[in-house]
Write a protein that binds this DNA or RNA. Structure first.
Lengths: 259, 259
DNA sequence: TCAGCTTGTTCGTATTACGAACATCCGTGC
DNA sequence: GCACGGATGTTCGTAATACGAACAAGCTGA
């Protein structure tokens, strides 16, 4: 089978499926419920076409109707379930992350690389934080501006890393954010030699995080573990001397059990 | 717009989307990765057809190829993200559930009704439990055999409850499980009058759980909160005198903040 | 009440998805 | 090493499916 993906317009590309998934994905945090016309506008699609997809998703149970508006049903969670269930170490990682949160009072996550983004796969949220970090499983953030992304990129072979950096779009979120490829690559190579990555207020002001890679005992990369903190509360020294060793401890314990 | 859903074969039903989603859903805990032929067999679909859908999902980034096999990518988590993000009280409920887990050392969840099932929407897993309860967000379990399901059913109007029970399939999982509709309805009505439901070893041997409904201050049902325990470790009295009040406390606190 | 805008729906047909059949690959046994 | 059979990969004629222009119905504000 040819390695390169087929494209829209190819005979084997089912454009109706692509359009239907496009419709499913226009429901987002900003648009949790919409009329048919709003769906069509968001999806940049003919109204009659959007109608068919919404009605089909409704018939399949993925969308429900409230008056003239539509919104997703919990059945959509099932679409991600197999991915979650296929990670056999997910439950134990969740437990370890919960330990971190219980002990340090910080949010902690497992993320994986997906295209240009990091996707949150497991998450243990800190409690009683006024400065809320609003993330959930499935959230995607640009890899280049997250500690997890940087540490995962550092584990790529050079050719893959260079290829990634060639096509990386650097759109700074804060004044602190890296703006060009050369310093970014330095940070990634630094993460490689250190075995961890710290990102300080590059994704959002006040957001400081540290991440380490987590491997199985057979050296298969499971993802990156991180702790997210508030820069006003946690200084760099605490991050390095308390939080990082904690992460490294968890990564080692996962490695000891994960084949 | 007609309230009754359209059916396969109707002109407005996009069968290609339905088939594509069917293919996406044959990846499950038992079949996390499959060849094209295996996908076709699981989906009960012509091989060439399954190929087109798998190739399209691959082109869209939802599926990746490993040799001759295909598996889901973390991008599928994005399909559920909007549902999660649209629940504006999710983060705070997650925090409260985390408190329960920290305090009692038990798993705690928020679930909602979806068809005949309860779907886990928020989950805080207990740590260091040898008797593992393997669930994740997106997991579906039969409403009639779960405490959350029973308590959610108890909040339905009578006509809806009777309609649900008319079509309910009772397939007992354990010797303790209710086998017919009359005693089930009694349990549900009991849950309605008590304001909570307890299910004891009906879903799985050793699994004991208690659930309460959680409402907003405007009396909109958000779902059910539960605590799952091991019957060998937690007796009924502790469940009633320690765990249940804890749940009711959380439900009240959610109500106080949730509009 | 009426007009204008939005939402809901229909149906002729262009285009798309279908599957039978052919092509290629891989693993096993001699 | 080679042949064979089964599994996997792909093509292409065409049946049928999805498309969108246009009509129908509903809603809201003046």
């Amino acid at each position: 089978m040819d390695e390169s993906s087929l494209k829209p317009g190819d005979r084997d590309f089912v454009s109706a499926l692509a359009s239907g998934l496009e419709v499913l994905q226009v429901f987002d945090a900003e648009h949790p419920r919409m009329t048919l016309s709003e769906v069509a506008a968001q999806a940049n699609m003919d109204r009659a076409k959007a109608r068919r997809f919404v009605l089909t998703l409704h018939a399949l149970g993925f969308v429900k109707r409230v008056g003239r508006q539509f919104e997703l049903t919990p059945k959509v969670l099932q679409l991600g379930y197999a991915y979650q269930a296929s990670n056999q170490y997910r439950a134990v990682i969740e437990q370890f992350l919960g330990d971190i949160t219980a002990e340090l009072g910080e949010s902690s996550s497992l993320g994986v690389l997906d295209g240009q983004d990091v996707v949150y796969v497991v998450r243990s949220a800190a409690r009683h934080r006024l400065m809320a970090i609003t993330l959930s499983v499935g959230t995607r953030l640009p890899a280049v501006y997250t500690s997890m992304g940087r540490v995962l990129l550092s584990q790529l072979p050079d050719t893959e890393l260079d290829s990634f950096l060639d096509s990386a779009e650097l759109t700074p979120f804060t004044p602190y954010a890296i703006k060009s490829v050369a310093p970014l690559k330095e940070e990634i190579l630094k993460a490689r030699s250190q075995g961890f990555a710290i990102v300080d207020q590059e994704l959002d002001s006040g957001l400081r995080s540290v991440a380490v890679p987590v491997y199985t005992s057979r050296n298969v990369l499971l993802g990156a573990l991180n702790i997210s903190t508030n820069a006003a509360r946690v200084d760099m020294e605490t991050l390095m001397t308390v939080y990082l060793p904690r992460l490294q401890d968890v990564a080692a314990r996962v490695r000891a059990i994960a084949q």
